[in-house]
């Protein structure tokens, strides 16, 4: 049971599946998220029973996350089929899945908690070794907003306020006005962050203030 995510979803019973399709050098769960074989074997029926027990003890939501849970789509869908209709289900995703994957997810989760990490393809390629990031992610966010409740997350990275946060915030303001946005300012230089000079430190007060100011100027609907 966890309370570190968005307050309106807490307390949540979170189910973390290892492995991810991205390779973010700053990944805070890199050891598990870069290794789809990490952890224990997944049994959907046993996990559904634990999730149901958690709901009875007070969990407000059941959250399926990664790494990136899309890479385990069959197991995730099997789990959903075993959970009670009343369960409020959250799909925590990097928003970089395929169109086919999102069609399979249609109607399965009540909330998409989706990352919009990078503001341009060059930063995505350099920091997460992923190509065509912007097009795929924006397409998924628009789809998620149309099909389910959407909360967008952006992890503010040191030195990336202008190249990443500004374009992300501007696009959200123009294309998803009113969408809930969680601007995460607790970047910490984890995993392979040291491969990049600018990522070897935390966010400064000035960077934090500038990012919040931009969010307010653009009238983003910030949540905690």
């Amino acid at each position: 049971m966890e309370v570190s995510d968005e307050l309106e979803l807490m307390p949540t019973f979170s189910i973390a599946l290892s492995g991810c399709d991205l390779r973010c050098d700053f990944c805070i769960t890199g050891a598990e998220s870069w290794n789809a074989r990490a952890g224990r074997g997944f049994a959907a029926d046993a996990m559904a029973a634990r999730a149901e027990a958690a709901m009875q003890k007070g969990a407000r939501t059941i959250m399926v996350l990664g790494g990136e849970p899309t890479i385990h789509l069959p197991a995730a869908l099997e789990l959903v089929s075993l959970l009670p209709q009343s369960a409020k289900l959250v799909w925590k995703t990097n928003a970089h899945g395929s169109a086919q994957a999102r069609e399979l997810l249609d109607g399965m989760f009540n909330v998409w908690l989706a990352d919009f990490k990078f503001g341009n393809d060059d930063c995505a390629q350099r920091l997460a070794k992923v190509s065509d990031y912007i097009r795929v992610t924006q397409e998924n966010l628009l789809w998620a907003d149309a099909h389910t409740e959407l909360i967008v997350r952006h992890l503010l990275m040191p030195g990336h306020g202008e190249c990443c946060w500004r374009p992300v915030a501007t696009w959200l303001a123009e294309n998803l006005p009113g969408v809930k946005v969680n601007l995460r300012t607790g970047f910490w230089p984890a995993w392979h962050a040291r491969r990049h000079n600018e990522l070897q430190k935390a966010i400064t007060v000035a960077e934090n203030d500038a990012a919040c100011k931009l969010a307010h100027q653009l009238r983003l609907n910030l949540i905690a």
Partner: peptide, 10 residues
């Protein structure tokens, strides 16, 4: 305070 919503640790 969310602890108050949870009856027991699982």
């Amino acid at each position: 305070e969310q602890q108050n919503l949870i009856q027991h640790e699982l």
